[in-house]
């Protein structure tokens, strides 16, 4: 790896001070499993001057729950989410999504903050610099997206325009289905952003002097049902081809409230509002489910090589509703 300086942050305020000093040339390191990969391949032009260890911040890895909901520190490890009884009991979708990430060794160090803020897996974006130089693209600030005319089997079927890379985060899908908010601290103070609003086509909303400090998850309605399904080629390591997060609560026999969130189909977790509309107030009978599955892909504009994602999306939505 090319050299960098290293600092261990002692608090959130300390982290923000370091970030402010280095103006975009400092990178935060929690689990490090995403950051170090990019630093090693030098896929991006910018190489940090300073890597800031934030694992040294005390108290940012807590899982707390009360009547209002769940609060997760940004440094909460994925393995701890998988093992948490509180989460398994009331927020099982989070445990399932966390359990589906990568492999045990990565879940042992990977944090929820890092999972949310990880860079895209677009294979043009990640192309290693050592083999003839990195591939430049919209996301890196120059040149056109090669995926549009290239091999886009893993790219977005919704939106894009400038960049068709998808958000690889499984946690984002599950959290969006729970209507969670991401808590951010920065030089200008604190703010909260809905998980669905955290991402934009070229990345996320974090300013260079900001960091994720935690996640707030509202307690879902009683008797809700939570489903996370991740489709991938292999049962480990792979990022989602398509995933779906579903949180549904019933009012007697009809759907009172529902959130259907799709993963790996857009630049962020994609809320299939048409599908939700097709479900609210209705019984979950086969015809309604079928209609919702169809509606989940309304507005999808697949690229040359990823129309199969449309079929998989519909299938996953149907399966999630049938469970």
């Amino acid at each position: 790896m090319q050299p960098f300086q290293h600092q261990a942050a002692t608090s959130v305020a300390d982290t923000i001070a370091i970030l402010s000093t280095h103006k975009g040339r400092a990178k935060l390191m929690a689990g490090g499993t995403d950051l170090l990969g990019i630093l090693k391949t030098r896929a991006t032009v910018a190489y940090p001057k300073v890597v800031v260890n934030i694992k040294s911040i005390a108290g940012l890895d807590k899982i707390q729950s009360d009547g209002q909901g769940l609060s997760l520190g940004a440094l909460t490890r994925l393995a701890d989410i998988v093992d948490s009884e509180v989460i398994r009991d009331a927020y099982p979708i989070l445990a399932e999504a966390a359990a589906s990430v990568a492999m045990p060794q990565i879940r042992n160090v990977g944090t929820i903050g890092g999972n949310l803020a990880q860079e895209t897996r677009c294979w043009y974006f990640r192309y290693p610099h050592s083999i003839g130089g990195r591939i430049m693209c919209k996301r890196k600030g120059e040149a056109a997206c090669l995926a549009v005319k290239g091999d886009n089997r893993y790219h977005a079927i919704f939106g894009g325009k400038k960049c068709f890379a998808v958000c690889p985060s499984d946690m984002a899908v599950a959290l969006a289905a729970l209507d969670a908010e991401i808590q951010i601290s920065g030089a200008k103070g604190q703010r909260s952003v809905a998980v669905t609003g955290f991402y934009h086509p070229l990345g996320n909303v974090l300013e260079t002097d900001e960091m994720i400090t935690g996640i707030k998850v509202p307690r879902p309605a009683p008797n809700n049902r939570q489903v996370f399904i991740k489709h991938r080629v292999r049962d480990a390591i792979d990022f989602a081809t398509v995933s779906v997060g579903l949180v549904v609560s019933m009012d007697a026999k009809t759907v009172a409230d529902v959130r259907v969130v799709l993963g790996a189909v857009a630049s962020g977790p994609y809320r299939a509002t048409d599908a939700e509309a097709a479900l609210v107030g209705r019984k979950l009978d086969p015809a309604v489910i079928e209609k919702a599955a169809e509606a989940s892909v309304a507005g999808a504009v697949p690229l040359s090589g990823n129309a199969y994602k449309v079929d998989i999306t519909k299938t996953l939505v149907r399966q999630a509703l049938q469970i």
Binding site: T41, W123, Y124, R126, Y127, P128, I131, G132, I135, L146, K149, G150, D151
Partner: peptide, 11 residues
């Protein structure tokens, strides 16, 4: 990627 001649999944 035939446009650039680059191998995309070399990881």
């Amino acid at each position: 990627d035939e446009t650039s001649g680059r191998m995309l999944n070399g990881n």
